[in-house]
Amino acid sequence: MEIVQIVGMGIVATILVVLLKEDKPEIALQISIVIGAIIFLLMIEKIISVVDVLKSLSQKASIDMIYMSTVLKIIGIAYLAEFGAQICRDAGASSIASKIEFAAKIMILVLSLPILMAVLELLIKLLP
């Protein structure tokens, strides 16, 4: 019943944020950052086991490790960018948030270019 803990923590943090938002919005923002980090750190154990299972499956299917690690990297970049962008948007700086998302999109594109090129080469080989 870990979900009860997390929901309770979220509600308490929300109440604290609402309490502090009028006088000290900067500290309210930091509380929301902290609750995001704590919830992720609580979930990290489970994410690790899921990633472990995915890795062993890909080894059984003899998929090249480079594709798996690319997928994992893309997930990580997307998560971090989303985290930062949501904090910026909460604080009312949505222009900075959209720039963070732009940078994350470019990085994901750069990471996925080799796979795209591999697919294209395979296609060219298959075509007569």
């Binding site: 950052i33 902290v34 980090a37 704590i38 992720f40 750190l41 990290i44 994410i47 690790i48 990633v51 994992l72 990297k73 997930i75 990580g76 970049i77 998560y79 971090l80």
Partner: peptide, 13 residues
């Protein structure tokens, strides 16, 4: 806390 979060995400992914 943020540096802990970032280092965990970095090692995991």
């Amino acid at each position: 806390l943020i540096s802990q979060l970032f280092s965990n995400v970095k090692t995991m992914f």
